[in-house]
Structures are given as structure tokens and as C-alpha cells.
Nucleic acid binder design. Structure first.
Length: 266
DNA sequence: AAGTGAAGCAACCGCGGCGTT
DNA sequence: CAACGCCGCGGTTGCTTCACT
């Protein structure tokens, strides 16, 4: 696979990479490390632009990059992180060691997004597009690569799973006195199952942070955040990324500790 | 066997953030 | 403080492979 090779006006090579080019890039970085991407190609004897080298290294050649099919656990993780972080693929990739942002983004766009559409779930809000009252049967994840795991459909997935997690995160953030610690607790809590119901705990959270949830409008599945709340949330998520890594990795043997229970419980 | 569309993957493009001058 | 350049990110495109007719 890959693109055809061509040269642009200034003689820079574009398109697919050859084995020889890969070897040159790897050999150079192994010996000298990553320095200035601008000058790296020339020093490494490549006719590529720095951007292209960086992309190739980060997405394909970098040690530890995992290639091949996504496991059901990884797919579940992507959906869960996406429900929290949105299209911040780099941030999602940070939580999934071995997978590049490009890889995750591609898998999302080519497979997971369509799967949610087929299931009638809004890909941005993770809410069912169809009437909640409609009883939805179980369905199979049918993305070829996934070993056929059955996941119960909405409402358990959308409103009790990711939505619940979101609510609890929102609750944590709404209370400035708990702030990041509250979110870390949510992530580190082994009971934070994505698919199993979390309504009880959410109710408890609401008691803890009743003031933040005072409005009736906020009693729905999703809190309605204003821009200020959302901005704070994204800032705090950004600040805690390294720590969240630790939390996720330490809570279980799985690299994706926060969500593994949902798939491994049965 | 040939044609066609969907799926999957690799890479490019353009923009915004950030550091430097 | 503005201008500039580089880097990283997200969106998009292009190509190959696969499945189906």
C-alpha cells in the first residue's frame, strides 16, 4: 500500500517510503537522535522534507509502535477516550501506548465512527439518535478485525457508560474544591466500568456536589456545560495527561485500566 | 474472470500554538 | 510586543486490498 512516488518543484521526494529510506532514517535517529527535523533529512541522506520524516518516524518507524489490528479492548478505549476528549487524537494516543494518533484517527474514521452510526449513536454526544424508548437488541461488533464480541446496546452503553463517565468527570470539575483529584479518582476507580450501570454512584456524586447540579436542566444524562466549564475541563485534562497515564497504567495489568472491566467482566 | 464499491492504511496539507528573535 | 519560523495536530486525500456481484 501507499502512495506513488513523485518529486515536487524543489526536488523533495514525496509519496510512499522505500525500505532503503526507512533504514536510513532509523539508522540516523538511532545514532544521533531526533534533533531539528528541518536538517535531519539532509544529514540522514534523504531527499524528504522534515515533516515527512517526522510523520514516518512517529507513525511507523518509532520503536514500540504497534501495528496491525485493533483489539476489542483498544477499540473500546478509543471510544471511551473519544467520548471524553473528542477529536484530540494526540491526547488519546498518549493514553494508549504503542498506537500513534494517526493510527487511532484512521481507525476511528474508517471503522468506529461508522459503527456508531450504524448503531444509531451520535458520534459526538454518544447519545442514541433514535428515541430512547425504543428497545434495542444486543449487537455484534462487526469491524472485521475485532474478534466478535457482543456489547449490549443503548441505553446501557450510551447513557450509563460513557455518558455516566462524562457526568462524573463533569461533577468532579464542577466542584473546584475537588478538581483534578476528583477526576483522578474517577479514572483510578476500578469500578468505573463503561458498560455496566453507574447510576448509583452518579447519584452519590450528585449528592456530594449537589450545588453544582442544582439546576433541573442538568439532571439529564449530560450536563450542559458552558464554554468556560468546557475550557477548564480541557485545560485540566491537558495538565493531567502524564499523571493520568500513571493512573491508567497502575490500576491493573491492562494498559487501559480504566475501561478494561467493561469487556473482561463477563 | 472482470467490474465495482467499501474498507483500510499511509501520507500530505493547512492551520494554530509556541518559542525565539 | 510584533514578526517569524518550526513543530505538532487534525482533516483530508490517494492508493491498495478485499468482498461482492
Amino acid at each position: 500500500m501507499g502512495r506513488a512516488t513523485w518529486f515536487d518543484a524543489d526536488g523533495t521526494k514525496r509519496g510512499g517510503w522505500t525500505d532503503e529510506e526507512d533504514q536510513k532514517l532509523v539508522a540516523y535517529i538511532n545514532e544521533y537522535g531526533i534533533g531539528d527535523w528541518r536538517f535531519l533529512p539532509r544529514k540522514a541522506g534523504l531527499q524528504r522534507c522534515g515533516k515527512s520524516c517526522r510523520l514516518r518516524w512517529m507513525n511507523y518507524l518509532r520503536p514500540g509502535v504497534k501495528k496491525g489490528k485493533f483489539t476489542p479492548e483498544e477499540e473500546e478505549a478509543i471510544m471511551n477516550f473519544h467520548s471524553i476528549l473528542g477529536n484530540r487524537w494526540a491526547a488519546i494516543a498518549q493514553q494508549m501506548p504503542g498506537r500513534s494518533d494517526n493510527d487511532i484517527k484512521n481507525h476511528w474514521n474508517s471503522c468506529l465512527k461508522k459503527r456508531l452510526e450504524r448503531q444509531g449513536i451520535n458520534q459526538m454526544t454518544y447519545q442514541p439518535i433514535i428515541n430512547l424508548a425504543v428497545k434495542t437488541p444486543s449487537f455484534n461488533i462487526d469491524c472485521g478485525n475485532s474478534s466478535s464480541s457482543t456489547v449490549s446496546a443503548s441505553p446501557s452503553f450510551s447513557s450509563s457508560g460513557s455518558a455516566s463517565l462524562l457526568n462524573r468527570l463533569a461533577t468532579g470539575i464542577s466542584s473546584r474544591q475537588h478538581g483534578v483529584d476528583r477526576i483522578k479518582n474517577i479514572f483510578s476507580d476500578p469500578r468505573t466500568a463503561i458498560i455496566t450501570g453507574q447510576e448509583e454512584e452518579f447519584e452519590e456524586s450528585k449528592k456530594d456536589h449537589g450545588k453544582a447540579l442544582a439546576s433541573d436542566d442538568q439532571e439529564d444524562d449530560f450536563l450542559m456545560w458552558d464554554e468556560e466549564n468546557m475550557r477548564r475541563f480541557m485545560e485540566e485534562i491537558g495538565q493531567m495527561d502524564p499523571e493520568m497515564n500513571g493512573v491508567c497504567n497502575s490500576s491493573s495489568s491492562s494498559p487501559y485500566g480504566i475501561y478494561e472491566t467493561s469487556l473482561l467482566d463477563d
